[in-house]
């Protein structure tokens, strides 16, 4: 089995996991509120029946706040009503935090001159959207290598050849996803009930080291060929900062199991992408005439700097 076949197999394993993660929460939380974000300063809400234009156009009739801080009201600057008068778009002066939940209360909704009472709308992103945002953020926008500078040691160490870069990228992604979930489980079911949060560094690094050792031992017995291809990388993974940073970030931001898994997957694929891009450039660089004092690492750093500049282009990029 060469690297290409192996990468196909790995893709077959990773893709269903990814699709499952994306779809599963959508099945569970199928019924979200009847409001949605349009841009980061706009919320769209829809009414059951056509409402009066004079009532709907008055911003004072709406009360908008974050679900976590009901005291802090966010002022509505203007309201536009759709031609059929069943949905309205509220515009705000300040940008909303798209990853949190908002509640919109409409006071004394009037339709055909009749008062219908107050209506509440819950506005939040669906779970799938949040997960996709996390995934995209970890992979491209906040790429762990180029904007957070983690995992540089491995990044410069194994990016000399395309083949090793691909092998490392795939091995790393698999180990990253599994250890992110394992660390989440340990944190939630062992450390937090026992109030041992301050031990998270020791526990996480221990978990990763034990897990890598276990994979190493199992792979050696079960599939010696694959072990020969990946064995070197497996040991190196323990010294990669990303493998410890992702569980720590998960613990800090209180991510759930799916968020942890998605962050791990995004971080792993982002690292693999960075490694692949870098190895392509460095293979070409071998043939170039580089000033002698720049040969080796110095020029690799300058190239990484150029990559980091180009990855800046992803900042502010969002789909939902």
């Amino acid at each position: 089995m060469n690297v290409k076949q192996f990468s196909n197999v790995a893709l077959l394993i990773v893709l269903p996991i990814f699709l499952f993660v994306m779809i599963f929460p959508a099945l569970v939380h199928a019924a979200t509120g009847s409001g949605s974000f349009k841009k980061d300063t706009e919320i769209q809400i829809s009414f059951g029946a056509p409402v009066d234009e004079t009532w709907a156009k008055d911003p004072a009739n709406y009360r908008v706040f974050q679900k976590t801080d009901p005291d802090i009201e966010i002022p509505v600057t203007s309201v536009t009503l759709s031609p059929r008068k069943t949905s309205a778009v509220l515009t705000f002066g300040e940008a909303l935090n798209l990853s949190s939940e908002y509640e919109v209360q409409a006071k004394n909704v009037t339709s055909d001159g009749k008062m219908l009472g107050n209506v509440e709308f819950l506005v939040k992103k669906s779970e799938g959207q949040i997960l996709f945002t996390i995934f995209l953020g970890a992979m491209l926008i906040n790429n762990f290598v180029f904007t957070k500078y983690l995992g540089l040691c491995i990044f410069f160490g194994v990016s000399q050849k395309k083949e090793t870069a691909i092998g490392m990228g795939i091995t790393f992604t698999i180990v990253m996803v599994l250890s992110a979930v394992m660390c989440w489980a340990l944190l939630t079911f062992v450390l937090q009930p026992l109030h041992l949060g301050f031990l998270q560094i020791i526990v996480f690094i221990g978990t990763v080291a034990i897990f890598v050792q276990a994979v190493d031992t199992i792979l050696r017995k079960v599939n010696p060929y694959l072990f020969k291809k990946l064995g070197v990388f497996l040991v190196l993974i323990v010294t990669n900062c990303i493998i410890l940073a992702v569980p720590l970030i998960n613990a800090d931001s209180g991510n759930g199991p799916f968020e942890s898994l998605t962050l791990g997957l995004g971080a792993g694929l982002g690292f693999a992408l960075a490694l692949f891009l870098m190895s392509c450039v460095r293979e070409k660089l071998e043939l170039c005439r580089v000033p002698s004092v720049f040969r080796g690492l110095p020029i690799a750093f300058v190239v990484a700097g150029l990559f980091a500049l180009s990855f800046l282009g992803f900042s502010g990029f969002s789909i939902f």
Partner: peptide
């Protein structure tokens, strides 16, 4: 650019070259 992510890479690359 020096405080942007890219700047750090450039600075280290050049300092390494100076050491060499």
């Amino acid at each position: 650019i020096m405080v942007l992510p890219a700047g750090g890479f450039f600075v280290i690359g050049f300092i390494m070259a100076i050491f060499n």
